[in-house]
């Protein structure tokens, strides 16, 4: 099973933001990370250490790119710095950028540091029931139960319907062409967590009340940031000054749909460099516009601007 997680487009901004200054109190970066780990992820039952790929959209200086945390689940199976560096399933950070050769300064450090704090908060939530703030919206379960159930799901269907809506829908064997595009656009638009997720959460709470005594078998997750190297595979590069978003989405779509677990890291470089061509980009741009307009329509947003720049060839084809 492919397990994917699409992070909010604001996640990267948040973990690289200045910690809050509140009435003279300052909080440390670790405290900021802990707050994000608990409230953005753990309280919602998101367990990053069960994922094969965690997509982190990166916005930096008016430019979009994406970092992908790969094979984090290896840490649940005892991965450490001393593990086989040639392993095909080794954890790493992939950075895919259509313009720049280098990732934003501090990106790798921020991601590693966040994961270290997240790993600790996760352990605490799993093994110290009641430590975390009770979950919201009046439900009885604690975040401990969310994670426990995700790690050790009582019934596959319940997990599927509750907490991995994006990931589950992206399973390759069930893929429809537009699914990932829709999901990613949804995430890019920052609206991935509207009412449907809330509804699913409520359903999940109900499931958990009956299975709250189930705790996962995993103990002692050790996360070592040094064993999470940064890799920059070759990717197609944009040829203009406006397509970073389209290229970023195409990288994500490619990895999410065309890179199952059997595609090993050592083959990635070769494959990504020939992911797609310019004509694919043109078609994808039109597709994304269609998806955006559909999403807007479905949400009652009618005042989108008209397209100002159609691809001539593609427009001709539509007319024909």
């Amino acid at each position: 099973m492919t397990r994917l997680q699409f992070m909010s487009t604001f996640f990267y901004k948040k973990i690289t933001s200045v910690p809050q200054r509140s009435r003279g109190d300052t909080i440390s970066t670790d405290e900021l990370f802990e707050s994000i780990a608990k409230r953005w992820l753990i309280a919602r039952g998101v367990d990053l250490f069960t994922k094969k790929m965690v997509f982190v959209p990166v916005h930096h200086e008016f430019h979009w790119s994406v970092a992908v945390l790969c094979n984090l689940d290896a840490f649940l199976h005892g991965w450490s710095t001393g593990s086989d560096p040639e392993s095909k399933q080794r954890p790493c950070i992939l950075y895919l950028d259509s313009v720049r050769p280098a990732s934003p300064g501090g990106m790798t450090k921020a991601l590693r540091s966040f994961l270290a704090v997240y790993a600790r908060a996760r352990q605490t939530a799993l093994f110290s029931p009641g430590h975390c703030r009770p979950s919201r919206r009046g439900a009885a379960s604690s975040s401990t139960m969310h994670l426990a159930a995700v790690l050790n799901p009582p019934q596959p269907e319940s997990t599927e319907s509750a907490f991995m809506p994006l990931a589950q829908e992206c399973r390759q064997d069930e893929m429809e062409d537009s699914t990932v595009a829709t999901d990613v656009i949804d995430v890019i638009c920052g609206d991935s967590n509207s009412t449907p997720l809330m509804t699913r959460k409520h359903a999940f709470h109900a499931e958990l009340d009956e299975t709250s005594d189930v705790l996962p078998q995993t103990t002692g997750l050790v996360f070592d940031g040094d064993s999470l190297p940064l890799l920059k595979p070759k990717v197609p590069l944009q040829e203009n000054s406006m397509d970073c978003g389209i290229y970023t989405l195409m990288y994500v779509e490619y990895l999410a749909t065309k890179w199952p677990e059997s595609y090993q890291l050592d083959r990635l470089n070769q494959r990504t460099s020939e992911l797609f061509g310019t004509s694919d980009v043109d078609a994808y741009r039109m597709e994304i516009e269609r998806v955006v307009r559909c999403l807007a329509h479905s949400q009652g947003i009618e005042n989108l601007p008209e397209s100002v720049c159609y691809d001539i060839d593609a427009a001709d084809m539509e007319d024909a």
């Binding site: 604001f10 948040k14 916005h59 200086e61 008016f62 430019h63 979009w64 406006m242 970073c244 978003g245």
Partner: peptide, 10 residues
């Protein structure tokens, strides 16, 4: 959290 709209276009 108040996050500025993230315009990307490079």
């Amino acid at each position: 959290d108040a996050m500025l709209f993230q315009q990307g276009g490079v």
